[in-house]
Design a protein around this nucleic acid. Structure first.
Lengths: 198, 198
DNA sequence: TCTTAATGTTTCTGCTGTAAACATAGAGGC
DNA sequence: GCCTCTATGTTTACAGCAGAAACATTAAGA
């Protein structure tokens, strides 16, 4: 698919976007170490240092890639959540989507969470993944909402990372066993029965 | 502390060990990106390419560092486990030790789990951390031993990673809230009461 | 003592990120 | 219609990197 150059074009057209796209391509193909500013410039057909008109340094380019990663992850989770029809099942679905996204976009996922930059816990972040997690936890966590937030995130993130790093097999069945509604909501043993909507 | 050169010394004494030690020092100080073979060689007082007599390439040097990381992690967990007197409390202690180790040795921890190399799930790995995890899970997991293994590991690993990457504050209280005996063993709701020895 | 294998050095190639000086082209004011 | 300004891109240069190849040294054993 050829990117039709927008009318707003100086020399190249939209170098910044082209560089980000090339970067994402390289992330998929060979991981973060496969990204070289000079190589990206070459592919886009521009001199090596032209990159610096759009990104102060390499870190900035990587940060731009990470940002696009967060957006995509949020989108995937939202779809999974809706597809599961919301509720506790929807919550678990966002967790599984989290892991699946990591497996489908290993380098992008890693980059997104390693070169955080903006950082911030989900309690105050405004990105889609944080919003979903917060919303579901508050809905179903009752008085343990915060702990649920943390544990749910940690389980999903840990599982994703361990699979990415080859410590656990990237097995769908395994994901379903670890992230399932029942084990996330073990019938609240000691009192505190929450009366959330169906 | 000066490393007294062993009698078995050729030109340098023990270049390999010296390089690994220098590498660990750099990991603590500046992270993985701070490790340059040339710089290490310089510090050890040897030519840049002498390194290649002991490590085929940079990856191999990093793998050696990672191996030492696993050993240290296992040691820390074993101590924590014993200090807690074993049992479910000991289990939780190994999890907290896992996270603390990550926070105390961020670069080493990251390297250890990122450049896995030998890979392998804890079900068949022989390193100390895997052994502890397997042993405790089988002791207290009952019929859900495998799921317990996975979830416990995922929670600890996820929490560690999120804290390392600045997504969660590296807060002791937070660790205790996420990894506590009660929430790991929620009174086994649906039957299957295990009668493990004290 | 002589040979040999292990260890270390010099030199070289091609890559990287990035700084500085220079070039160009499109936009807006005259 | 011309001129200047600014955003964008280029050339050239530097220092650092991983790694390959050829050569040197040194300890250990025959």
């Amino acid at each position: 698919m050829v990117t039709v150059s927008t009318s707003k074009a100086y020399h190249h057209g939209d170098l910044r976007t082209a560089l980000v796209e090339a970067g994402l391509r390289h992330l998929e193909a060979g991981g973060e170490t496969d990204i070289s500013l000079r190589q990206l410039a070459r592919e886009v057909g521009v001199s090596a240092t032209a990159v610096y008109r759009h990104f102060p340094d390499k870190k900035a380019l990587l940060a731009a890639l990470a940002e696009s990663g967060i957006a995509r992850l949020g989108e995937a989770q939202r779809i999974a959540s809706e597809h599961a029809g919301g509720g506790p099942a929807g919550f678990a679905a966002t967790g599984r989507a989290y892991v699946h996204f990591a497996l489908d976009n290993p380098a992008l996922f890693r980059l997104t969470f390693t070169h955080a930059g903006h950082a911030g816990s989900p309690t105050n972040s405004s990105d889609e993944p944080s919003r979903l997690l917060r919303s579901y936890s508050e809905q179903f966590g009752g008085e343990n909402a915060e702990r649920l937030t943390l544990q749910a995130w940690a389980v999903a993130h840990g599982l994703a990372m361990l699979m990415l790093d080859g410590r656990l097999p990237p097995d769908d069945a395994l994901i379903n066993r670890v992230i399932d509604t029942k084990s996330l909501f073990p019938a609240q043993p000691s009192g505190s029965n929450n009366d959330a909507s169906p």
